[in-house]
Simulated assay, not measured.
Amino acid sequence: MITNSALGVTLTIAPNSAFAADGTPYTGQVSIGSLPAGTPIGLPAGFAPCQLLVVSPTGVTFNPPAQLASARVVGIGQVSSDGACISTLIGGVPGGTALAMTPRHAGMVERKTQPADIFNPSALGGGDLATSFSPPGMRELGAARGLTFVYHSTTANARPIVDAAAQFGAGLGLPQTLTSRLTLANVAQQSASMTNLSTPVAGAGPPDPGRDNGVIQAGVADATNLVSGAYRYSLLTIGKFTCSAVGAQATGTLVVNNQAKSPFGAGWQLAELQKLEKQADGSLAIVEGNGRTLIAHPEQAPDFLPDPVYVRVSGPFLGATAGNSSRALRRSSATPARETPTARSTSM
């Protein structure tokens, strides 16, 4: 048993359990100390423990793992009945490794307010303001041939909301505050949201650590300079405790429809018009005139015979019901294809 009174930690090593890097039994000294704050050791994002401990010498391992007990660090493990000490339960302490005990991070759950492969303007989920205008048109063969212009405020100023649920299980403890930072397309966003869990909610009182708790955290993404398409995002949520902080991330794909530079005016689209935006991964963003944007992923090319027959169909080509797009049909070698007559005009 090794005790560092200054750090308030005790390391318990089982007899004959220390081994050198070459696998032979280790018979030298073992010590436990601390690293200075800010030591660059590649901690996970948002991870800031009260103290960093290190077991020396480097290369020494313990089998079974050594057990660590700390009187000053709040973290994962078994808390003593008097609340003065925490001991490791699962795993243990290897030699030459920086370690720390911290509170458990929140479980981040992505909310499905917007699916990963589609964008729909939403007044409730995104604060969208929509209107439409149909100028006088014409009728041809008994059918109206007019055009309709559609406006969505969320496409005129593309700043979508990204949110996730931070979940804390019963008995795991609650942080004092939660702060979320959003990154979109590898660019850190300026907005950050903060929730103070130590302040009672009006009419509800403070959260009960003895019950399951969930907090919705959100960030606003600035997509005004992005082309319509799908982009990866990360919402890092940091829980701040008395002397430590621990982070958890929710990641996903956000579909953006940016019509700030539309030729019809910012946010305006022609309802009868579909546009294609090629993505870096080879997929296509299909921007529909009603404001919806779909992501079509490339499919494996079919195994055609040397002379496929192409069948033409009219749009919309990749709407919500799919299946009405142009397709190349493979002709069976046993069935000859019939050619479709084509009208031709000859100038005199």
Results as ranks from 00 to 15, higher is better:
Ser244Arg: 05
Ser347Cys: 02
Gln259Ala: 15
Val150Glu: 08
Val162Cys: 10
Gly8His: 06
Pro302Arg: 02
Gln274Leu: 01
Ala69Trp: 01
Pro64Asp: 07
Gly28Ala: 10
Gln167Glu: 05
Arg211Gln: 15
Ala221Gly: 08
Phe149Pro: 00
Ala143Met: 12
Ala285Arg: 06
Pro308Arg: 00
Leu276His: 02
Asp307Trp: 03
Ile216Cys: 03
Ala48Asn: 13
Leu276Pro: 00
Gln259Cys: 09
Val74Arg: 11
Gly219Val: 05
Ala320Cys: 02
Gln269Ala: 14
Thr97Pro: 00
Ala156Asn: 04
Phe317Glu: 07
Gly265Val: 05
Val309Ile: 12
Ser332Gln: 10
Pro103Gln: 03
Tyr231Asp: 06
Leu178Gln: 06
Asn120Ile: 14
Leu178Tyr: 04
Gly107Ile: 10
Gln217Met: 15
Asn213Ile: 08
Ala221Glu: 05
Met101Glu: 00
Pro15His: 03
Gln167Asn: 10
Ala260Cys: 06
Leu53Ser: 07
Ala116Gln: 12
Gly291Pro: 05
Pro135Asn: 08
Ala170Tyr: 03
Val227Thr: 14
Ser325Tyr: 10
Ala143Cys: 08
Asp163Tyr: 01
Thr342Asp: 09
Pro341Cys: 05
Asn157His: 12
Pro160Lys: 10
Ile86Val: 15
Ser70Lys: 04
Ala334Lys: 04
Ala20Lys: 15
Leu182Ile: 04
Pro40Trp: 02
Ala45Pro: 09
Gln78Arg: 04
Ser262Gln: 08
Arg72Ile: 04
Thr242Cys: 06
Arg145Gly: 00
Leu99His: 02
Arg330Asp: 14
Ala285Cys: 05
Arg72Met: 04
Met138His: 11
Leu254Glu: 05
Arg312Ala: 14
Leu226Asp: 04
Thr24Ala: 14
Cys85Lys: 13
Gly267Glu: 12
Leu35Ser: 05
Leu294Glu: 09
Ala343Asp: 03
Arg338Ser: 10
Thr179Ser: 13
Ser283Gln: 05
Gln259Leu: 15
Ser228Leu: 06
Phe119Ala: 12
Ala185Lys: 07
Gly8Gln: 03
Gln249Ala: 15
Gly239Asp: 01
Gly169Lys: 01
Arg145Pro: 00
Asn157Ser: 12
Val201Thr: 14
Met348Asn: 11
Gln190Asn: 11
Gln259Ser: 15
Asp212Gln: 11
Val309Arg: 10
Ser180Asp: 01
Pro135Val: 01
Ser87Gly: 13
Gln167Pro: 00
Pro209Ala: 08
Gly28Leu: 06
Gly23Asp: 01
Cys243Thr: 11
Ala245Lys: 09
Leu124Gln: 13
Asp208Phe: 06
Gly203Thr: 01
Pro316Cys: 04
Val74Asp: 11
Asp212Asn: 13
Thr321Ile: 08
Arg312Lys: 10
Asn324Met: 08
Phe133Trp: 12
Leu52Met: 14
Gln114Glu: 15
Ala164Asn: 00
Ser332Trp: 10
Ser81Glu: 10
Val55Asp: 09
Asp303Leu: 13
Gly126Glu: 15
Leu236Ala: 07
